[in-house]
Design a protein around this nucleic acid. Structure first.
Length: 398
DNA sequence: TCTGGGGTCCTAGGACCC
DNA sequence: TCTGGGGTCCTAGGACCC
């Protein structure tokens, strides 16, 4: 790639093996060693150092398989609070260059740098500046992709890994994209790739030279059109400045895989209560209420059901969320089914301040609200274990 | 000893209203 | 008598991302 980045004002910045890099940055003896962040007897790999990747370890791989592939790897449990702190600092570094920062996850973001070119001279310079600062301030490496569109910038940063920078100038976009395998495209996963392979399409160039209508018939009107557009390097995505914490979510949920499959409804209900408590507390912290409660139940063979119910009024209260979740679960009428995972999610969120609530006849206005807020205060002062529903105290989870 | 936990977005069918 | 669309909301499922 040439250094001419004229017109390329979008950067995709992606930390290299983020969780693993943060986990070992204060432990010089582990530099260059195979390290896996993950855990739990039924967990997956969250992140692995490049030394571990050399043995074939990949993100999202079952830990059992990862340990088999790389028995000498050190396994470290994730510390999400630490990751979150580092992530916030990194996003602030990005914002010191441009206000147009769109975080995609803890460890990556799109930056629109058009407005910063006068100060920095070129997009490439900005990328190198950020790489140097993050290496200096956080002692981890990152990779940067520079292009005219988000999709191409994202693919460029992947090409740059680890610890590099790749520019894809406008007139080299098709030469860059077309040799790539279809599954390299953002939004093309296992199923879509298989569908494309059935059509005989192996490379991004194959997609580009197939009629949009054929793509849409195979993948649906929206996804088909998007994938075809991406094959020509054109995407409609414009960067939306967001600041993680005050961005309203569309849903808040929690799920839990049991360490062993469970066939006792009482244990499942107790877990639904624990998850409802967790979700309700997170909703109150985010100052949102929601109307639709969804449960997910995954069985031993990975088949998964979802059931949802929409309430008349938005809520952020454990008793209401739990009652709905428990009702949905009971309505499934399961008889000693072997359950692997359950989850509770609340959707249709709105700002707590604007949520209106019609009082039922005779309902006390502040009953549960007051109780829950007292719980929040106690948890804040004494920690999460301080206050929880009585049924969660009897036995520990399986 | 297979396969986490947090999300977003899309599709499709049915109910219901005008 | 027969037969309409369009719009919105709800529910269930599935694909995908990190």
């Amino acid at each position: 790639m040439t250094a001419d980045d004229t017109g390329c004002t979008i950067l995709h910045v992606d930390m290299d093996a983020f969780y693993a890099s943060v986990a070992i940055r204060d432990r010089p003896e582990l530099q260059g060693q195979p390290v896996i962040v993950g855990g739990g007897n039924r967990g997956v790999v969250l992140s692995a150092t490049y030394a571990a990747r050399q043995s074939g370890v990949r993100s999202a791989m079952p830990m059992t398989r990862a340990r088999r592939l790389c028995p000498r790897a050190l396994v470290i449990a994730p510390d999400f609070e630490q990751f979150s702190t580092v992530s916030s600092a990194i996003m602030e570094t990005f914002r010191s260059v441009t206000p147009l920062v769109e975080p995609l996850s803890m460890d990556e973001a799109f930056l629109e740098v058009k407005g910063s070119l006068r100060r920095f001279d070129s997009s490439t310079r900005i990328g190198e500046h950020l790489r140097a600062r993050i290496a200096d301030e956080q002692r981890i490496t990152c990779s940067v992709g520079v292009a005219a569109t988000t999709q191409v910038a994202k693919l460029a940063s992947r090409r740059a890994k680890p610890d590099g920078l790749v520019v894809v100038p406008h007139d080299e976009v098709t030469a860059f994209l077309h040799p790539l395998a279809v599954e390299e495209l953002w939004g093309v996963g296992e199923k879509t790739a298989a569908q494309l392979h059935r059509l005989g399409l192996r490379t991004v160039g194959d997609i580009a030279h197939t009629q949009v209508s054929i793509m849409q018939r195979a993948l649906g009107p929206v996804v088909g059109a998007r994938v075809h557009a991406m094959a020509w390097g054109s995407d409609q995505h414009t960067i939306i400045a967001r600041r993680g914490a005050d961005e309203p979510e569309h849903s808040i949920g929690a799920d839990e895989t049991f360490s062993r499959d469970v066939d006792d409804a009482a244990i499942v209900l107790r877990e639904l209560l624990r998850l409802s408590t967790k979700v309700a507390a997170r909703m109150r912290k985010a100052c949102v209420k929601g109307r639709t409660v969804t449960i997910r139940v995954r069985f031993y063979d990975f088949t998964t059901f979802t059931r949802s119910r929409t309430l008349r009024d938005a809520t952020d209260l454990t008793p209401e969320i739990y009652a709905t979740a428990a009702g949905l679960f009971s309505a499934l009428g399961l008889q000693r089914a072997r359950i692997r995972m359950v989850g509770v999610r609340v959707e249709n969120l709105c700002d707590s301040a604007t949520a209106t609530r019609q009082l039922l006849l005779g309902e006390r206005q502040h009953g549960w609200e007051d109780a829950e807020r007292a719980v929040d205060r106690a948890v804040h002062r004494f920690g999460g274990a301080a206050v929880r529903p009585a049924t969660l105290l009897k036995t520990s989870r399986p």
